[in-house]
Write a protein that binds this DNA or RNA. Structure first.
Lengths: 342, 342
DNA sequence: CCTCTCAATGCAAACGATTGCAACAAGGCA
DNA sequence: TGCCTTGTTGCAATCGTTTGCATTGAGAGG
């Protein structure tokens, strides 16, 4: 197509072509002020003509940096929720943007936790300069221990007491409380929580829900937890089962949008009108929530900002700074699934 | 916590500890038959005691392999569909499983196509042993050209005439035809296609749709295409707009499940009953389809198998074999969104 | 007892870049 | 003219492995 001169594959080749030493080429391509303007230009031009791109493996070895960040998702086996989860994949997408923009590569790993030393293995292989862990899952202890290793990492998840590693995430307690209070304001009094508190984030959301109920108006029913993993199937079944118990309720606060959507489906197919008979509020703010019927009221997490923060905090840790955890506020997005007025 | 001996960070350290030469350590860890059983065991034990893991950068440089596969998603800018798309992320998830299982790392990249030489850049940096391109998007020409480069890659997407690179994907034409014929069998005659044929896969689906209509029973209306990008918003708006034209239709064949779900929402909110007045069939078989209301009839693509094939074909190409494209059959999954009988 | 084989190990050269330091030329200043 | 500074460039060590080849020692066969 374009007349491509025989391509230079190594820096030495390029140096020969340019009639200079490889060190000069290296510096030229690195935009070092040590090499003269005209020479630098010539080398850069030559490089692009010959389709030369620095071999990153060699560069990494020598410089000790990999220009790569690992993103790892520990998936508690019981909750078979995968990258498939729209929330995770949305976060992933934002992370990809952010990491790419900072000039890094993104190495994606899945970890299925009944696995020893996953963190140490990951860290020791030195395939990346730092690690972003998405969701604490059941691995809080591992992460606490990892904080003593010298490998930089940050975690998306919940803020726990006595935590010694850097976490970025929504203020789950306040956010959940906000969501529940919204239901209370609308006059709902028997609000059910659906979710599985095995993961810290969900547990915190449950706490926020409890707090809201505890401060609710007279007649507010006590907390009820319907246990359901974060998968559509699990949530659907759990909702049906709860319906079969016959216990009355007029609202659902779901630990995630995926759960909420599945719960809505279970309710609908049982002939229950949403929001007239049962109002539903989710958590996460996934795109699809706006497009199910009825559209889902939810507590949005700001993933754009979350991803940005994860990456910048990690890069700062890599640079040697000590960084603090960040708690972001959630945002209530009101849509059809909980009627505006009773 | 666990009494960890001062960790050996380099192979030389470990060799010193074991009282052998580094080459012996290298061989021992690589399970080479050249090193004696007892020695090998001792070294392996020592390595795990000291938390030693081979530095993969160094290994890669020396051996010329990176043990990493790139996964890249070219995102045509106009269709702002991202990793967020449940279909993509599901495929991604399966790929992650498969790649990990084969002992490779997965390097994820996003490419926003009005970008020159993205493939060559990717290829030349040699960060991975091969590339999996998800979706041809608008980049068919680039891929055709890339086929002449020596970098192994495979593509998930549609099978086009004269294509000289390896593609794995569903037989879009047949599958779409199957879906449309199902609607015809149910007595629907005015079937609308929603989607954007700018990407080859969608175009092929449209062709299948056309074929089905061409062979449909008397009274079958001519093809109608409602253009909509693959995002929820776009599909929602496009559906509403089509409704405003007042043109009658009794079924929708959507180019993807995401489109289908958004279309259903648009229909529902316009007071149209699904499936009584308008039946809907999607394409992809994303999980969520089973959990919207009404549950979505769709044409499922076998992503588990797809991911497996992509990886094995790529690894074979890396090994130097020449590999053929693979066309997989789609599977019609009948659910509520198109009534069983008219 | 001497060689020959074979298994196991050590030696040292790559892999392809980065980077501190030396070298060199030109120009400024005394 | 001589010396020092400054701006460029070359030299060579280095990053941590892998791997072809040389070396060693022991056991077998003549």
């Amino acid at each position: 197509m374009n007349s491509k001169p025989k391509s230079a594959t190594t820096m030495a080749d390029l140096a020969r072509l340019a009639g200079v030493h490889v060190s000069t080429v290296s510096r030229a391509l690195a935009d070092s002020p040590l090499v003269e303007q005209s020479v630098r230009k010539r080398i850069i031009k030559l490089a692009s003509q010959h389709g030369y791109v620095v071999n990153s493996t060699a560069r990494n070895l020598r410089s000790g940096r990999t220009q790569t960040l690992s993103v790892v998702i520990p998936l508690a086996h019981e909750l078979g929720q995968g990258l498939t989860d729209p929330f995770f994949s949305s976060l992933l997408s934002h992370l990809a943007d952010e990491i790419t923009e900072k000039g890094y590569g993104m190495l994606l790993q899945k970890v299925v936790p009944p696995m020893d030393h996953w963190f140490d293995q990951l860290a020791a292989a030195r395939r990346s300069d730092g690690i972003i862990v998405i969701g604490q899952s059941t691995e809080h202890k591992v992460l606490q221990a990892a904080a003593y290793s010298e490998v930089p990492f940050v975690v998306w998840g919940g803020h726990l007491r006595g935590q010694n590693y850097c976490v970025v995430g929504t203020d789950n307690v306040s956010a959940a409380r906000m969501a529940t209070e919204h239901l209370l304001r609308l006059g709902r009094r028997r609000i059910v929580f659906i979710g599985d508190p095995v993961s810290p984030e969900i547990k915190l959301r449950y706490e926020g829900y409890e707090q809201a109920l505890a401060h609710g108006p007279a007649g507010t029913a006590k907390p009820v937890m319907v246990k359901a993993h974060l998968t559509p199937d699990a949530a659907y079944q759990a909702t049906l089962e709860h319906l079969r118990t016959g216990r009355k309720f007029d609202a659902v606060f779901a630990a995630s949008d995926v759960i909420a959507i599945s719960a809505m489906r279970a309710l609908s197919s049982s002939g229950i009108a949403i929001p007239e008979q049962v109002a539903v509020v989710g958590f996460d703010g996934i795109d699809l929530g706006a497009h199910v019927h009825p559209a889902l009221t939810t507590l949005r997490q700001d993933l754009t900002r979350g991803a940005k923060l994860l990456v910048t905090q990690l890069l700062r840790r890599i640079a040697g700074e000590t960084v603090e955890s960040v708690k972001m506020p959630g945002e209530l997005v009101v849509r059809e699934s909980c009627g505006e007025s009773r």
